[in-house]
Amino acid sequence: MQRYWVNQNGIQSGPLTIDELKAMTIDVKNTYVWRSGMADWQRIDEVPELSDIVAAAQAAATPVPPEPEQPAETQEQPEPSEPEAEQPSEPEEQPEQEPEAEQPEQEQPSEPEEQPHAATPPAPPAELNDEPAPAFQQPAFQQAPTPPQYASAPMMPATPVPECPPTNLVWSIVCIVLCCWIPAVIGLVFSIQVKSKYREGNYAQAKKYSDWSAWCCIISIVLGVVSMPFALLVQLLAVN
């Protein structure tokens, strides 16, 4: 039987069986799950095997938004978890991020609070490695029966999904329109890869393609600048 770790609004619980998950009230937009075998945390509606739970939760949520009951956790962390959240700090947006206020249409970008323990940065950098699971997952899973250490370390990152690396689309377009060197077109192909890899959850690859597309743009600019004097020279020779 597969068991799942659940992170709901920054509060982590598990391992839970599918039946236990079904019994939970799930706020789909703010719930992430991980089980052994998954490369990283994923939002619950991105896990195919849990789709019927998601469907049930969404059906239940539409008429009357229920309070997402946190399983046996007294500790409320007002940390929203959002895939594309940026790290720091738009304090004026925080008040709207009540964990119990269910917002089916969460428009504003939710940004995790500035971490008091600045010394321990949140997970995203670690996830750029090829490691199967982020570092803070591993111990949690190994001590399976005991709950993970969110209690002792309340500032465990609630955003397990790193933000997407830049696609560098703008720079590719600018290079193609102005410098007309072929590397920029290759960079554009890499830009496509960035997003598709990110969507698949392959963050390391996404980062790699992002870097490559940036390099393509740089090469294209350098080639463009270097070729300029040559082009001028040829033109002058042709005129004379």
Partner: peptide, 29 residues
């Protein structure tokens, strides 16, 4: 979108989505 990425990450993500990049690529080609 890039400048306001902090504040509106979804907007930036939307105009950099796979479909948009593909469209740009096809249009340029």
């Amino acid at each position: 979108g890039m400048a306001l990425r902090r504040r509106y990450p979804r907007f930036d993500a939307a105009i950099n989505s796979v479909g948009v990049v593909w469209t740009v690529f096809v249009v340029i080609m």
